[in-house]
Amino acid sequence: MTRLFVAVFPSEEAREHLRHRLRPVPARRSEKWHVTLVFLGDVPDDAAVVRALSETPPPAPFSLRLSGGGRFGPVVWAGLEGDVPALHTCQAAVRSSLATVGFPSDPRPFRPHLTVSYRFDRRLAAALTGYTGPPWTIEEFSLVSSVDGEYHRLWTG
């Protein structure tokens, strides 16, 4: 079984900008920073997921930027601004495509964010206060597997 999720990834410029803002406070590795659209968990057949996603139209290009932050318990996250309604539309399309082939997703409302750290640190929270990063363009989403804490993009469209 493979733990799968569908996500969009900030540009390298956006990740580097945030990484610079957070230095020298420990945070998650920036190459793992993403915005989860749908978390699927353990999936026995990722080929079926790829087929469903390949039939989902890619989003029309839209722009986001990392902005501010907050926390869920010990989790520290960066918020988003820009064309967030387009991100919601993209997430709904992915979720719908996956549901039609039997992959239901979390029924909770979509609250887009980028997890910076799974361990609360006041310095991270302070660094995110008032933060606004550079915009980046979303034109695709990716199916990602998580194996032993490493991420592998299985499909992008």
Rank of each mutant, 00 (worst) to 15 (best):
V75G: 07
V94T: 02
V38D: 09
L114N: 07
E139Q: 14
P112E: 02
R51M: 15
R111P: 15
T137G: 15
R95T: 13
S142A: 09
D148M: 09
P135A: 03
D83R: 10
V50F: 06
V35N: 01
R119C: 08
V49S: 03
P74M: 12
R122I: 13
D83Q: 08
T132W: 15
L114D: 07
P135Y: 09
T100A: 15
G79Y: 02
F141P: 06
L128M: 11
E140P: 08
A125C: 09
P134Q: 09
C90G: 08
E139D: 15
Y151G: 12
T36F: 12
A47N: 03
T129R: 12
V49N: 10
R119P: 13
R51Q: 14
G41E: 09
L98P: 11
I138R: 10
V94G: 00
D121P: 08
G102D: 07
S96Q: 05
D148R: 04
P107Y: 08
S97D: 09
L64G: 02
S105G: 12
Y151V: 15
F141S: 04
D45G: 05
L37F: 04
G73R: 11
E140F: 13
T89P: 15
G69K: 00
E140C: 06
Y118L: 11
Q91W: 00
T89Y: 11
S142T: 10
P61W: 09
I138E: 15
G102Y: 14
R51Y: 14
H88F: 03
F72S: 04
E150D: 13
V101A: 11
V116S: 03
R123W: 07
V94M: 00
P134E: 09
D121C: 02
L124Y: 10
E139Y: 15
F110L: 01
S145L: 06
E55A: 14
P134V: 06
R95D: 12
P59W: 12
D83L: 08
S142N: 07
V147N: 15
A47S: 06
A93G: 06
V84M: 13
D42I: 13
F72W: 14
Y151Q: 13
A126R: 12
E55S: 12
F141Y: 02
T137E: 15
V35P: 01
L124I: 07
E55H: 13
G82Y: 06
A127F: 00
A125M: 11
W136I: 01
T129I: 10
G73V: 07
L40C: 09
L124A: 07
T100V: 15
D83W: 13
A86S: 11
A99F: 01
T56M: 01
F103H: 04
V49I: 03
L53P: 11
T56L: 00
T132G: 09
F141W: 02
A127I: 08
A93T: 09
Q91H: 00
H88M: 04
F103V: 06
L53S: 09
Y118C: 11
F72C: 06
F120K: 06
P57L: 01
R108D: 14
P58N: 03
P104E: 12
F103S: 01
Y131V: 06
